[in-house]
């Protein structure tokens, strides 16, 4: 569905003497197969939206080559536009307009008849739980409804490939969970290929078959969520000890089973331990023998945040 090689985009800032080239995206290779749901994960400013805007013909790459939905990005942009749906971060409907007429007009711009656009629009409103919103001004819709309307707008011409740019940013948890169902339905019920960007790890984890991690304009990893998590060695075991004297004892004991260094922070001692659950009974006995008394113990499976931290040396949350 998408084949991109060396796709890059740089901007120039400043004038004359102060003129500097800023590489927003410096050469990414992307390959997405039909029927896949692929997540593009990275902090703000990593180059997600720039890449997406290149793949949707809105921005011409300064280097590289790509075919999207079977058409060449550079020579057949109009055919690419006809074949893809794009749901941008900033919305797609005027606040003053009526929801139903916006989707009909949008469909007509794709060359389908008014009648066809109305039928398709009504169907999509039905599928995306927007019943009764057809005659409503869009400004009276809730955040989640407005976002679903944007998705309906992007689907009105029945595209094979759908791009979603940060689809759940700014939504409350319930609306997010609800939208996730709709996004997975895109594939299961419509057979669409989905390419989405997000800076939420749980979102990428819950929705995507495959995740590409982008940082500073470069793809640093591309794999299934589980494989990515496996790259982080071991589960995180965190011990909270009862007093200062216990810290050293607990750290020494934990070091015997740890994969890497043991970190201490106040009364908290933590390290990565392979198969944390299995190691636990022995670890507890050893801690007891060493005379370290514990307040609490926690074993956590690696998250994509840990993956991101391992690959980039930064936490996704810090960079937000």
């Amino acid at each position: 569905m998408i084949q991109a090689t060396g796709l890059a985009r740089s901007f120039f800032t400043g004038r004359r003497a102060g003129r500097a080239e800023v590489k927003a995206v410096s050469g990414v290779d992307i390959s997405v197969a039909e029927g896949e749901i692929v997540g593009f994960l990275g902090p703000n400013g990593a180059g997600k939206t720039t890449t997406l805007r290149m793949l949707t013909t809105l921005l011409t790459p300064t280097a590289g080559h790509a075919t999207v939905a079977g058409y060449d990005l550079a020579t057949e942009p109009v055919k690419v536009r006809q074949a893809i749906g794009y749901v941008s971060q900033s919305g797609s409907t005027s606040s003053q307009a009526i929801a139903g007429s916006e989707i009909v007009d949008h469909g007509m711009l794709y060359g389908i008849s008014k009648q066809q656009a109305t039928t398709r629009g009504r169907e999509l409103f039905d599928q995306l739980d927007l019943d009764g919103m057809w005659n409503r001004p869009t400004k009276t819709l809730s955040g989640g409804q407005r976002r679903r309307l944007d998705i309906a707008m992007g689907l009105v011409h029945d595209p094979k490939l759908v791009f979603l740019d940060e689809p759940t940013t700014g939504l409350d948890p319930q609306a997010r969970a609800n939208l996730w169902t709709h996004i997975s339905d895109l594939r299961t019920k419509r057979g669409s290929t989905v390419f989405l960007t997000t800076h939420y790890l749980d979102e990428a984890d819950a929705l995507c078959d495959r995740i590409m991690v982008i940082d500073h304009g470069v793809i640093v990893a591309s794999d299934t969520p589980n494989q990515l998590k496996r790259q982080v060695s071991g589960d995180l075991v965190s011990l909270t000890v009862t007093s200062e004297e216990d810290v050293a004892r607990a750290a020494a004991t934990l070091a015997t089973v740890a994969e890497g260094d043991v970190a201490t922070d106040g009364l908290l001692v933590s390290a990565r331990v392979r198969d944390g659950g299995v190691a636990m009974p022995d670890l507890l006995r050893a801690l007891d023998a060493a005379g370290a008394s514990l307040e609490s113990i926690e074993v956590r499976r690696p998250t994509l945040d840990d993956v991101f931290l391992t690959m980039t040396g930064r936490s996704l949350r810090e960079s937000e």
């Binding site: 809105l58 971060q89 900033s90 919305g91 409907t93």
Partner: peptide
């Protein structure tokens, strides 16, 4: 509101 971008795709 994103309308221009939506029209341009």
């Amino acid at each position: 509101d994103g309308v221009i971008e939506a029209e341009r795709v």
